[in-house]
Design a protein around this nucleic acid. Structure first.
Length: 638
RNA sequence: GGGCCCGUAGCUCAGCAUGGAUAGAGCGCUGGCCUUCGGAGCCAGAGAACGUGGGUUCGAAUCCCACCGGGCCCGCCA
C-alpha cells in the first residue's frame, strides 16, 4: 500500500528517464530529471522536457524517446514525443485502484507523509500588543501562522506555537496608566475591547495634554498654528471616543488631568516595570492578562491555538538580555559611542552571510543600537534574547511578523551568527506578510480606529446563518448555529490565506465574506455534497471495478485526488500555504462538474456505482483533510 | 541617498523560487441549465500592449539591467 498514489506514477517515469540516460552512456547525475504537469490541452499527465538534455549532449529527443520506450512500464499507459516533450500517460484506472486502496486505509491520514527528518519547530505568530482587541491585520498574521503550524504538523514535525506578549514599552504603559485610574470601574464588555477603549481614550487625553503644554511654551505663531490644528484633530477624536462611553471617558479625563504631569507619570510606570517594581508589575500584568483572555476567546472562535504564551518582560527580567549584550560586546562587531552599537554589516561580511542570505554584497546593513543610553533595553536586543530562548528546544524558529520589521529581523539573524550560532541563524525564518489596510483610512489603534476580528467573525457567522436557514428550514437551531460558525469562520480564514502573504490587502466586507466560488464555503459545499451522496448509501461499496470508470470528469478527479500527498508535501516543505487553497479549489471545482453530469447513485452496474462511490469518498476525504490543514471545519450538511 | 516588496482582464488575484506547449481563476457583464444524489452549483461567451524600454536564450509574465508608478524600512519606537 502506498501513501502517495501519484508518486508511484512519478517514480516510474523518473526511473524510465534515468534508465534511458544511463543506457545512452551518461551518468544520471549529469541530467536534472525534472517533470512538469502538462497543460490540459495535452493528453498526458507528466512531461519530461528534453530541451536541455538534448542540447547539452547533442542527443535528439527522438533518441531519448526511443530509449525510454524500452522501459518495462506498469502504471504508464503510453509515452509520446510531442514538440520536444516526452509525455507520459498514466493508466488512470490502475491509478484509481491504488488510490482507493490507499485512501480507504489511510483515511484521515491520507496526504500527510511524515518527513524523513522530523524537526522541532517553533512558530511564533499573532503576538499583538495586549492593549487592544485583535484587528484584521493581526487576524492575517494569526491565520497564516496557525496554518503554517498545521501544515508542518501534518508533515510530522513537532511544532510549538508561541505568542510573544509585548508587554514592555510606552504604549503598554499608556494603557496601564489609564487602567490605574479606573480600576474600580466595571464594564460589561469583552475585556480586550475594554482595555482597547481605555488605551485609545488615555492616549488621546495625553496627546491633548501634551499639545496644550507645548502651546504654552510655543515660541512662534507658526508653531502655535501647527499645534492648534493638531489639537483640533485630537479633540474631534476625543469627541468620538467620548460617545463610545461617556462615563469611562470622563473618569479617565478626570484622572489624567488631576495629575500634575501625566506624561512623566507614564514614563515612570514604564521605567518601574522594566526594573520589576512589584506594584507596577501587578498592575500591568493584570491589565495585559485581561486583554489576553479576550484574545484567547477570539482566537478560539477562529480555531487558532497557542502552545506557549511568552511575556517579553520575563525576558527582560531574566539575565537573557544581559547575556546577549555581553556576548555581542565580546565580538569585534560592537563598538561603543554613547550606546553600544552592533555593526551588523561587518558581521555579515566577516561571516559570509550575505551570499548565504541572498543579499546584495554591496548592500550595507544598517547598524543596530543595542541599548538605550540610560541602560534600558531595546526591542530588537530583547528579541535576540527571546529567539535564543525559543531555540533551546527547537531546530527551527519561524517568526510570523509584518514586513515592516524586515530589517530588525535581519539584524536579529546576523546577531545570532555573530554570537557564534551560525546554525541557528540558518534555521531562523522571518515569515513576513504585508499589512491589511482599510479603504479610505489608515487603521490606528492609537486613535481607536480599527476593524476588530470579533466584529468580522460575528458578521461572517450572521451572514452564514442566513444562508444556512435559507436552505434548511427545519433544521434544529443549535445545529444551524454550529454550521453557521463553521461556514463563517471558513470564509474568513480562506479569504486571509488565499492571497500571497507578500501582497498588500485592502479590507472590504465583500472580500472577507465571500461565499461564492473560490471561497471557503465553496470548498465546504463540495464536501457536504460528497457527504450527502455517501449518506444515502446503504452498506459498504467494496465490490467495485475501477476499470469501468470512463467519464473524463471522473478520470480527472482520480488524477487530482491522487496528487494530494505531493501537494501537501511541497506546500509544507516550501512553506507555501497558498498551494493548499489553490489545490482544494481545483478539487471542488472538478467535483462539482462531475456531480452535475454524472449521477452516482443511479449508475449501473453496481460495480460502476461502487467505483464512483469510492471516488466520491476519496474526494470527501481529501477535502476534509485539506480543510483541516487550513483550520477550517468541514460540515456534512450546510 | 540606499535597501526590500508590489505592478498580469473593468475590479480582486493565481502563475514568477526551478524559463517551456494556446497566460489561469473569482467578482462584475452576456446567454443557457431545476421530471435526476442539495442551484453556496453547472455549461457557454465577451474581456489581457503580463507597468515601460533594453538584454540573455531555440524559447521570457518568469532571469539580468535601466526607468516609471505605489508601498514599507534605514542608530537609542515596537
Amino acid at each position: 500500500m502506498t501513501s502517495n498514489p501519484f508518486g508511484e506514477f512519478r517514480v516510474e517515469c523518473y526511473n524510465a528517464v534515468k534508465n534511458a540516460i544511463v543506457n545512452l552512456g551518461f551518468e544520471s547525475s549529469q541530467v536534472n530529471i525534472k517533470f512538469e504537469i502538462p497543460p490540459p490541452s495535452i493528453d498526458a499527465h507528466l512531461a519530461f522536457p528534453t530541451f536541455t538534455f538534448s542540447r547539452s549532449f547533442n542527443i535528439s529527443p527522438k533518441k531519448i524517446y526511443d530509449e525510454i520506450l524500452k522501459f518495462h512500464f506498469k502504471l504508464v499507459d503510453n509515452v509520446k514525443l510531442t514538440a520536444g516533450y516526452i509525455n507520459f500517460c498514466v493508466n488512470i484506472k490502475r491509478l484509481a485502484d491504488i488510490l482507493f486502496n490507499s485512501i480507504s486505509k489511510l483515511d484521515e491520514q491520507y496526504g500527510f507523509i511524515p518527513a524523513e527528518k522530523p524537526m522541532r519547530i517553533v512558530v511564533e505568530h499573532t503576538s499583538a500588543n495586549p492593549i487592544h482587541p485583535l484587528h484584521i491585520g493581526a487576524a492575517r498574521n494569526a491565520v497564516i501562522g496557525d496554518t503554517l503550524a498545521r501544515l508542518l504538523r501534518a508533515r510530522g514535525h513537532k511544532v510549538s506555537t508561541h505568542f510573544y506578549i509585548d508587554d514592555v514599552g510606552l504604549q503598554v504603559s499608556v494603557a496601564a496608566y489609564g487602567f490605574s485610574k479606573i480600576k474600580s470601574f466595571k464594564l460589561s464588555m469583552k475585556p480586550d475591547h475594554f482595555i482597547g477603549l481605555i488605551y485609545a481614550i488615555t492616549n488621546c487625553l495625553l496627546e491633548i495634554w501634551k499639545i496644550k503644554r507645548d502651546l504654552d511654551n510655543a515660541e512662534s505663531d507658526e508653531m502655535r498654528i501647527k499645534l492648534l490644528s493638531k489639537l483640533s484633530e485630537w479633540v474631534s477624536i476625543a469627541n468620538e471616543l467620548r460617545e463610545r462611553n461617556e462615563k469611562l471617558f470622563d473618569l479617565l479625563n478626570e484622572g489624567v488631568n488631576s495629575d500634575p504631569d501625566p506624561i512623566r507619570a507614564v514614563a515612570e510606570l514604564d521605567l518601574k516595570y522594566e526594573l520589576g517594581d512589584e506594584s507596577v508589575k501587578s498592575l500591568i500584568r493584570e491589565m495585559c492578562s485581561m486583554c489576553i483572555e479576550g484574545f484567547k476567546e477570539t482566537l478560539k472562535k477562529i480555531n487558532v491555538y497557542h502552545d506557549s504564551w511568552d511575556w517579553e518582560s520575563d525576558i527582560v527580567w531574566s539575565s537573557l538580555v544581559k547575556k546577549v549584550l555581553k556576548g555581542l560586546r565580546e565580538t569585534s562587531f560592537v563598538y561603543e559611542e554613547a550606546v553600544p552599537i552592533f555593526d551588523a554589516n561587518s558581521a555579515a561580511n566577516k561571516l559570509g552571510l550575505k551570499e548565504k542570505l541572498g543579499l546584495n554584497v554591496n548592500y550595507e546593513i544598517p547598524k543596530l543600537i543595542l541599548q538605550r543610553s540610560d541602560g534600558r533595553s531595546l526591542y530588537t536586543t530583547r528579541d535576540i534574547a527571546y529567539t535564543l530562548w525559543q531555540f533551546r528546544n527547537a531546530d527551527k524558529v519561524i517568526h510570523v511578523i509584518g514586513v515592516e520589521q524586515s530589517l530588525a529581523q535581519l539584524q536579529l539573524k546576523v546577531a545570532l551568527a555573530a554570537l557564534g550560532y551560525t546554525d541557528l541563524a540558518e534555521n531562523f525564518i522571518h515569515y513576513s506578510y504585508e499589512l491589511v489596510s482599510l479603504p479610505g483610512f489608515k487603521m490606528s489603534s492609537r486613535r481607536g480606529k480599527y476593524v476588530d476580528l470579533d466584529r468580522i467573525l460575528d458578521e461572517a457567522v450572521e451572514r452564514a446563518k442566513m444562508e444556512v436557514l435559507k436552505r434548511n428550514r427545519n433544521m434544529d437551531g443549535e445545529l444551524v448555529d454550529k454550521i453557521s460558525r463553521m461556514v463563517g469562520v471558513g470564509a474568513v480564514r480562506y479569504a486571509l490565506i488565499s492571497v500571497s502573504p507578500n501582497k498588500k490587502m485592502v479590507f472590504t466586507w465583500d472580500r472577507i465574506l465571500d461565499f461564492n466560488r473560490n471561497s471557503g464555503p465553496f470548498i465546504q459545499y463540495a464536501h457536504a455534497r460528497a457527504c450527502n451522496i455517501l449518506a444515502k448509501v446503504e452498506g459498504a461499496f467494496s465490490d467495485y471495478d475501477s476499470s469501468m470508470l470512463e467519464d473524463e470528469l471522473e478520470l480527472d478527479l482520480v488524477l487530482i485526488v491522487s496528487r494530494f500527498p505531493e501537494i501537501v508535501t511541497e506546500a509544507a516543505d516550501t512553506l507555501r500555504i497558498e498551494l493548499i487553497t489553490d489545490y482544494l479549489y481545483d478539487v471542488a471545482l472538478k467535483f462539482n462538474s462531475f456531480y452535475d453530469s454524472v449521477h452516482v447513485l443511479k449508475s449501473k452496474p453496481i460495480q460502476l456505482r461502487n467505483a464512483r462511490l469510492q471516488l466520491v469518498n476519496a474526494v470527501r476525504i481529501v477535502l476534509s483533510n485539506g480543510l483541516s490543514l487550513l483550520g477550517i471545519d468541514a460540515p456534512n450538511r450546510m
